[in-house]
Every structure is written in C-alpha cells, then in structure tokens.
Design a protein around this nucleic acid. Structure first.
Length: 633
DNA sequence: GTAGGGTTAG
C-alpha cells in the first residue's frame, strides 16, 4: 500500500451518517466479497470505507476488485477519484482502461478519455471490443474525426470490425461527425441490417436534418419496434416536422406497436409546440390507462410543459400537484408555465416551495422566476431575485437574467433606468435585450430613447426581420414615414424577408394553419363571411390602430391589410367550427399586434367566448373585454 | 473470472 493512496482516502471525509458495515469488520474479506460489496453499493458515501478496507487488506492492485471500484466510483462518486485510484495501479489492464474511459465519457471529459486510450496504446496494451466502443463514444461526442478514424483502422487490423457493438458505434460516430458516406458504408456492410442498426442510421440522418434519407431507411425496416418508431417520431419533431411526427404516431398505433414512456414524452413535446391540446389530453389519458408508463420526471415534465404551452395552465398545475417526485426541471417547467400565463404570484410561490423542499435552483430557474416578476410588474421582487441568485446560490447572472431586468423596468415605464442598467452591465448587451427596450419605448411612447436604441441595434448588425419590423413600426407609430421606409429599404437591401405571420388552431384533433393574407381552407367562404360579419359589429366600438402596419397607404387599405392577420382567420374558423361557449385557443408564430389585441378583447366580449392566444412571447387570455397581459406584451 | 446495440422534459 502506498502513502499517496492513503492520502487519496484521507482527502475524503468519513461520512458520519452512514453506519459502519459489519461485513467490513471481517478482516478476511476476499476478492469475491469485495466485488459483490461494490456491485451492490448504491450510495457514494459507502465507497470510501470499502476502498479503505481494500487497501488495508492488500487488494489494491487486484484488477478484478479495481475494475468494480473504478466503475462504481466514476458513476456514483467522481471521475477524479476514479482517476486518482487508476494512477496508483502499477500495471493497469484493458479492463481498467475501459472503466476509466467510460467514467470520463460519463462526465463529458471526452478528450481525457481519448488521451487515456492513446496512453494505453503507447503502453502496448492490445485493445479489445469493449475499449474500442468506449473510445469511439468519446470520439463521437468530441467530434474527433481523425482519432475516431484511427481507432477504426486499429479495429480493422485487430479483426474486430465484424463485432456488432463496434459497427454500431462506428455508425454513430461517423453519423455524429456528419460523415454519412462512411456511416452508410458500415451499415451496408452489415450482414444483418436489423431494426437496431436501422434506428442508428435513422438517427444519423435526423441529427443533421436529412429527413428524406431517414424516411427511406425507416420505410425499409420490416419489423419496427417501439424504439425505432420513437426515434423516427422524435427526429421529425427535432426537425420541425410536427404534423408528420403526429401522423407517424397514429400509424404506429395502427401497426399495433405500443408507445412507451419515451414515445409519449416526444409526442407531448410535439403537442406543446403545435398547441395541440386535444391530442395532448388524449396522450395524458393514455398514460393514465397504461400503468406501465409511470408519471416520472420525464413524463410529468412533458405533461406540465404541454398543458402550459397549450394554454391549459390549470391542468398543468394539477399534474404538478399529482407528481410524487419533482426535480429542479419539474419546478422550472411549472414556474415558466405560470409566468407565461401571467400568474406571477403563483410562480413565485412555487419557487419558494421548491427552496423549502431543499431543491437547489439553477440559472434556468431564475430566468423563469424573473419572467414571472416581469409579467406581473413585480419590480422590487425581481431585483431581489436578481441579487439573490449570485449572493445566495452562487449563480452568476447571465445575459438572459440581465435581459429580464431590462424587460421588467421597461414594462413599468422606467425606460431611462432600463437604459442606464444596460450601460452599467458587466457584459455587453445582446440584441434580444435591446429589442425588449425598443418595444417598451414603443409601448410607452418614448420615441427619443426608442430612436437611440434603434441606432445601437442597427450598428450592432445581425438584426432579424422581427427587429426591422419593430423599428419600422416605432417610426410609423409617430408618423415618421420616411424613416419607416428607410428601415424597410435596409431590410430589402440586406435580403431580409419578413417572417410570414402564421396562426394555427386545433379542431377535432386536426391542426389548421392560417397564413397572413392567404386563405386556402376548404371552408374559406364561411370564414370570410364570419370575418365580415364581425368586422361590421366591431366597427361601431372599435377604430383600428392603423399605425401598426408597415405601409403608408390609405387608411381603408390599411384596414384591409389588418383584417386578415392570421390570428383573425384562425379565430373565425374557431368560431364557426366549435360549439358556442367553447374556449378558442390559437397559436401564433409572431407577436400579436396592437390592433388585433384590442379587437380580440372586443371579440371575446361580443361572442361570450374565452379566447386564448399564444404568441411568440407569452399567453393572452381574453375574457369579458380584457386580456390577462394587462395590455403589455 | 472482470462489461452495453438504438429512442426521453427547461
């Protein structure tokens, strides 16, 4: 036993809470007993006493015992501890190398894993299939193409390339590095191109947006299992192909393949992005009926997210209350959900409850809490939270947190303070923050500061279409048509296209999409009729806020252009296709304009309907002529 | 005598 080894043990405090294991008192513990002790160990606190005993009984160079010790300490405790143990081993074999490389991969120290592999090669230790797959994993995550190719060559020389695990990892490695030809070559060489290999190949393509190629491989799989279907559905969702993903989910069931926990989490994610509440509810009831899918962190979190983002915040809260175990992500999702819906006090209460439970917040938690303060105009509390994050939790504020404060001050009209806050920040402002301030300037009618911010924004470069539109609108709203036109010209010059407004509504399990000024719906006639009818009723009590459109055209023309904002079409379709009294839920890709906002308030009053609109930033609950955002968004 | 195929929420 070496002194340095004792130093390693000595650097860890003996946990007073864990009772001494009586087995350890037996001085004649043998290797097998050590191994089974290590294998059954579930608590990091138990590693240290076991390790101490291993050293005392002279088993500290036993490769079999060391292997278990390395595996355990890198998964339960820390890879640094495992690494220090490894350094004390006089002749580490391939097993020990594999265990430590795995440990490095687990914590994301991929380069260390690769370096360790090369050290092993330098010591003339012959790699086996296990260490090859481990180092390939490290190469894959590190995008270390050159090293991975070298490992591939070594595997070929050693005759290991017929091994299935290696070929699978090779495909994953080449796929992640974007070398589809190489991935494909490995795939094509397989004698058995089964569902597992195909799933990996499908993932390779979907990781890089190659949907067509993925579908081709998917279609050729004869017997698709749950994982294969799920990988395909998840990949489509990651590539923005929501409807295709949901279609596949239906097909999967027709094919009698049972969704598992992962499948429902993926499908719920699609629902939340689309605002497909009905389907989301169906998935929820499916989970309720099929007890093999439990309401764990993943499923619970996905449900909370889905209900929040589909506009049913009450149901999100019910799911949250039902969950037996919640982690920090569960809390983060619930807090952001409540914030999105303007339920600021409730969000802060959840945050406080989380702290009481002893769950440590992350930087994401603070973004959510600060957002909640924003939507409720809780300035003092917002500042309190902002200061608390670094003071009490050691989390340094990032650009998003600074942005929340700017938003917070902007909302209540403290524009100068917001501007000073930006100037005194330790980091450079990003364009999200400047846009937030510009938007506040527009809402509070401070054109002077608005122009100042606009100049900074333009000089900043990298401005997107939304910002240009906002800039142009700031000018247009004060009648400065020339400046507005200049912005539009700049937009054209830079080849920046205005992102087309798009709203969707779910009716009878189907998502109906409406684009700005374009109606290609089978019920087109009826929708226009409803639109006209409502326009007539509204005319009496509502003068359109025509300053929000880009063009300096005649008023009546402006009215026409406004009349067909996509959310209006979606709402009209909702009105004609659902029973009276049904809540109408619309999802929009951009932010709602002033005019539509005030029009929907009236519409909700006249029709006696609740109208819920999710825009790019938050939720608007329209009821009885009022909106939950308090007219600030 | 040491050890895995693919899918998971902010």
């Amino acid at each position: 036993m070496s002194y340095s080894m004792l130093a390693v043990v000595g650097s860890f405090t003996y946990p007073s809470t864990s009772a001494p294991n009586p087995k350890l008192c037996n001085a004649t513990l043998r290797r097998k007993e050590f191994i089974s002790l290590l294998k059954n160990c579930k608590d990091a606190n138990q590693i240290l006493p076991i390790h101490a005993k291993i050293i005392r009984t002279g088993h500290d160079q036993d490769p079999f015992v060391l292997f278990q010790l390395l595996c355990l300490s890198s998964t339960l405790s820390s890879v640094n501890y495992a690494s220090t143990i490894f350094q004390q081993v006089r002749n580490p074999n391939v097993f020990l190398y594999t265990a430590l490389i795995d440990g490095f991969v687990l914590v994301g120290s991929y380069s260390d894993g690769i370096r360790l592999y090369y050290q092993m090669i330098d010591r003339f230790i012959v790699p086996d299939k296990y260490v090859i797959t481990s180092v390939l994993k490290a190469c894959e995550y590190r995008f270390a193409l050159r090293e991975g190719k070298e490992v591939h060559c070594q595997a070929l020389k050693l005759g290991l390339c017929s091994n299935r695990s290696i070929t699978m990892k090779l495909m994953e490695f080449y796929g992640k590095c974007g070398e589809f030809d190489n991935a494909r070559k490995v795939f094509d060489k397989l004698t058995e191109r089964d569902v597992v290999a195909s799933t990996i190949m499908i993932n390779c393509f979907l990781d890089h947006g190659l949907v067509k190629q993925a579908v081709q491989v998917f279609d050729r799989v004869r017997v698709k299992d749950t994982v294969c279907w799920t990988a395909m559905i998840d990949g489509l969702i990651r590539n923005g192909e929501m409807n295709m993903a949901l279609e596949l989910f239906r097909e999967m069931q027709k094919d009698n393949v049972k969704p598992n926990e992962v499948t429902v989490v993926c499908v719920l994610s699609a629902c939340s992005q689309l605002g497909a509440l009905e389907l989301g509810r169906w998935v929820h009831s499916y989970i309720g009926k099929h007890h093999r899918i439990e309401l764990n962190h993943f499923v619970g979190g996905a449900l909370i997210n889905m209900y929040s983002r589909c506009g049913d915040i009450d149901e999100a809260e019910r799911v949250f209350a039902m969950m037996k175990e919640r982690n920090v992500i569960t809390y983060n999702l619930m807090i952001s959900g409540l914030a999105m819906h303007g339920k600021s006090i409730e969000a802060v209460d959840i945050f406080r409850g989380m702290i009481k439970q002893g769950i440590l917040p992350t930087s994401v938690t603070f973004v959510a809490v600060l957002n909640a303060c924003n939507h409720g105009g809780l300035v003092d509390l917002g500042f309190e939270m902002f200061h608390s994050m670094s003071k009490d939790y050691g989390i340094p504020p990032q650009i998003e947190h600074y942005g929340c404060i700017v938003d917070l001050l902007g909302r209540v009209g403290r524009l100068k303070e917001a501007y000073n806050f930006i100037q005194n920040m330790e980091i450079a402002p990003d364009h999200v923050m400047l846009v937030a301030l510009l938007s506040a300037c527009k809402i509070h009618g401070n054109l002077e500061l608005g122009e100042q911010v606009a100049r900074i924004l333009i000089n900043h470069g990298g401005v997107d279409s939304g910002t240009y539109v906002l800039l142009s609108n700031v000018y247009a709203s004060s009648g400065k048509w020339k400046e507005a036109a200049q912005i539009r010209a700049k937009m054209k010059e830079g080849g920046i296209l205005k992102e087309p407004g798009c709203s969707s509504i779910e009716v009878n399990n189907e998502i109906h999409e409406f684009l700005l000024g374009e109606l290609r719906h089978p019920q087109k006639g009826k929708i226009y009729k409803k639109l006209e009818e409502l326009n007539q009723i509204l005319k009496a009590g509502h003068t359109p806020a025509t300053d929000v459109v880009l063009h300096d055209i005649e008023d009546w023309e402006k009215e026409q252009a406004l009349a067909i904002h996509s959310e209006r079409l979606a709402i009209c379709y909702g009105l004609i296709s659902t029973k009276p009294g049904t809540t109408i839920r619309v999802v929009k890709n951009l932010r709602v304009c002033d005019d539509c906002h005030s029009m929907i308030k009236l519409l909700a009053m006249i029709t006696g309907r609740k109208i819920v609109v999710r825009d790019r930033k938050r939720f608007h609950h329209f009821e009885n002529g009022k909106c939950s955002c308090g007219d600030y968004w």
